[in-house]
Design a protein around this nucleic acid. Structure first.
Lengths: 247, 247
DNA sequence: CGACTCATTGAGCGAAGTCAACGTCCGTGG
DNA sequence: CCACGGACGTTGACTTCGCTCAATGAGTCG
């Protein structure tokens, strides 16, 4: 998927916020810069200051923190079509580190340009704000997952969440496959468990016929059972809302 | 502490965002409603829709999710001077549940009024957005804490964080005391551990001379050591920034 | 004075971590 | 073309942190 415009940004925001034609046009006129990152590489290092936000065109990137021991914890994932680091527009000092899970293409859009268009169009400002809050709802659910679910349910919950997000991105196949590629170490850094223990949980889900992970991606064989195991309710993702027509 | 105006809201936003006199005045003119809640009570039940945001005047409230088993996980705390649920202005369907830890006084400000003033003043919209993003940074740190720190460090980290936030609220005494009151069950729901195990960790911190918890509040005896144990760095709280003068 | 909530402590267990070894795949260079 | 090395995945044995269950103390309110 190659993008030669900001259209993905407009699509992303329209998912949750109505935008007039004029507002959409203002977003499409924003200058951007396309970049490609190799997989399993840090895109933005710890402590690095950024002056741009990223829109993921294809691939996966994760925001992470690191303990002194070197252990990493990924606190957010962004897949194709999603906006990463939009929040740094209003709090640039929050320089989080980013890691590309797989080979990833992004669009860089300067904070200053985003601020300008937000100041000019209150409705766009609200859309940006809303997108950040939706990310917050996901974080909130991740706190619950990491704190309270047993390891197998943590994995199940992540797989269910990703299924919904890949479906939104149009990348969910009819057989339950979606192209989420990550090493077991990376997934363990998301779930807050050991890669070794994760391996056992992957096997468990496979043996129970619920889901299979491979190098190519994920196949969910029995979404209902997986969701039940994880106590998964997709409402917090805020993906199914029909944006009211506004132009 | 009794408030008869929206001044705390203005103070809160000015902590991180410069506001002109006109903008401050617009906020002060917002209608509000004061309410008091008893301690250890749910302020907003699970699934309840809200049409207002809350500013905590005094006391503590926590946002939580609940598993089918009945186990709760608190995903955010709000103490005196802080804005709770500002994010529901742009995503009202995210009706989180709130629990009052102690007797708490709040100001209710209608979403519709907040939207109106945000649409009128881009700078206020940005301030609201920024406040939400600051809450997000805290959540991000909580994911790390819950996922990666051992129980004692989890508690130490929370105590350090609260110390900074109570200091900001002007409620930190010179001897390291601040009036955070919560039952051990409530604190355990924050940290994602058992109340029983929390009790042992409290004893451990007390015996090591780091901190003491009592019914009246918390005393931190050795902040440096506590912060070292927790790997605590207050940068993520975004409290020390001097807002640029803007009026 | 009960009845209740909250705090405290002990004993035993289990989920997840640690350590260690080995298998598999893939790219690279002799 | 094969040998080597590195990254990733898989599995077993053992350890441990934190949970469960259970009992008791301490303070508070009606």
């Amino acid at each position: 998927m190659i993008s030669n415009s900001n259209q993905p940004l407009v699509d992303r925001l329209r998912l949750r916020s109505p935008l007039t034609a004029e507002e959409q046009n203002a977003l499409l006129c924003l200058p951007f810069e396309e970049a490609t990152v190799r997989g399993n590489r840090d895109l933005v290092a710890l402590g690095e200051q950024t002056e741009a936000s990223y829109l993921v065109v294809s691939g996966v990137i994760g925001r992470f923190s690191q303990m002194r021991s070197g252990v990493r914890q990924i606190v957010a994932l962004h897949i194709a079509g999603e906006m990463a680091d939009l929040c740094s527009v209003v709090l640039p000092k929050t320089s989080w580190a980013f890691h590309a899970f797989a080979p990833t293409t992004i669009l860089r859009i300067a904070h200053s340009d985003l601020i300008t268009v937000a100041d000019q169009y209150p409705n766009i400002a609200q859309a940006f704000w809303r997108d950040c809050v939706a990310d917050m709802a996901v974080m909130s659910e991740w706190i619950v997952s990491v704190a309270r679910r047993p390891a197998e349910a943590k994995l199940a919950h992540l797989l269910c969440e990703l299924r919904c997000r890949y479906k939104q991105a149009g990348l969910l196949a009819v057989d339950g496959f979606y192209p989420f590629t990550a090493t077991q170490v990376q997934i363990a850094e998301v779930l807050g468990i050991t890669a070794i223990h994760l391996n056992r949980m992957i096997r468990s889900l496979r043996e129970r016929g619920l889901a299979t992970l491979s190098k190519a991606g994920v196949v969910i064989h029995d979404y209902q059972s997986l969701a039940r195991l994880a106590e998964f309710d997709p409402a917090y993702l805020h993906l199914d809302e029909q944006p009211a027509a506004a132009s």
